[in-house]
Design a binder for these strands. Structure first.
Lengths: 189, 189
DNA sequence: GTCTATATCAAGATAGAC
DNA sequence: GTCTATCTTGATATAGAC
């Protein structure tokens, strides 16, 4: 599906870097080309227009998170809320390369709001999966919303939390999933 | 502080409307002027440049929510988590005029990420207030993050919930605040 | 496959009449 | 205080050489 010429990923890396450093509105083709070390013509050979670059950015980030969650799932002992937990643990990861979904998304949406469609779909699928889990619709939704809230705040650089607070919150989220699960189990007996 | 010529608010209304209908990237001065029924020259008489319009949009929305929360607070029986509850109830309001903070913010941030500063400050103040409440830092943070998550998703049009689900989630959030409070009370005895 | 040069266009902002 | 006309810039995209 995606061509894997070395410059292809190189250009996407550069585009993400520009967004992170200068903001979505400054992600011009000139800036991306300069950052990637190619000319604008070279860039436009790989991505015939700006929208195709933005879509590639979003798609690559979606794939990165999907792959990460599959890996995480393997290491979670079987239990009723594994999917939801893998989602929390994936978001907990502060690795720079891992947290560029926000950058890609804000650049895409700033250019054309309709480009949010693939992300909308991912969000939809997530909530379908998690709210069908055994802790109940509302509680699963709230946990997921809190995780997305954290990510979206970080994407907009309005998060009020430092690293230590951030990790305490994620730990509590994981704990709450278990607690909600236990409450539910008792109620069913 | 803010001039209240009728056209002043009229122009801000128009700017918000353009963002909601066409997206942040299409909020050009031409489009706003056309929507407001004035010429570009007329618009630029009130707002000397685009940034000043964007800042006015954000400030007005912040004030609307502050005023709304003050009103809501009066109707909440005294108790330990009144501030947090007023925040949830304010977010619950689906009145169109009330939910334009997202539009203003996305337009501002799309133009220049540094314009998020006033909102960053509001978010900071909120979390300071709520997490100092008696249900404990992590739980208060999670409730607040879930509310902000809902708002930010709606701002980006990626929310997967319909109206009925949305209101069930808000009800559960209010219930959880009380439940967390009770748990805390018992623990302190 | 990568480059330079250039066409085209849209948007922000200014000047000055009424 | 509102208008029209115009200037200027910067960004996307195309054409065509190497």
């Amino acid at each position: 599906m995606s061509p894997r010429a070395s410059s292809y990923d190189n250009i996407i890396d550069a585009a993400e870097a520009v967004v992170i450093e200068a903001g979505a509105s400054h992600m011009t083709l000139d800036a991306v080309a300069a950052k990637a070390g190619v000319s604008k013509g070279g860039l436009l050979h790989h991505f015939p227009n700006k929208v195709s670059l933005l879509m590639a950015m979003v798609q690559r980030q979606i794939k990165i998170h999907q792959d990460a969650r599959k890996k995480i799932l393997k290491n979670i002992p079987k239990g009723p809320s594994r999917e939801l937990k893998s989602f929390i643990i994936d978001a907990q990861n502060k690795d720079p390369m891992h947290n560029r979904l926000g950058a890609s998304m804000s650049a895409a949406v700033a250019h054309d709001p309709r480009l949010n469609e693939p992300i909308r779909k991912v969000v939809r699928d997530n909530y379908m999966k998690f709210t069908a889990s055994s802790i109940g619709f509302e509680k699963a939704a709230i946990i997921t919303l809190a995780v997305d809230g954290m990510r979206l705040q970080e994407m907009l650089s309005i998060s009020p939390f430092d690293d230590e607070q951030r990790s305490r919150i994620f730990d509590e989220l994981l704990r709450l999933v278990d607690e909600f699960q236990e409450t539910k189990n008792k109620a069913q007996k």
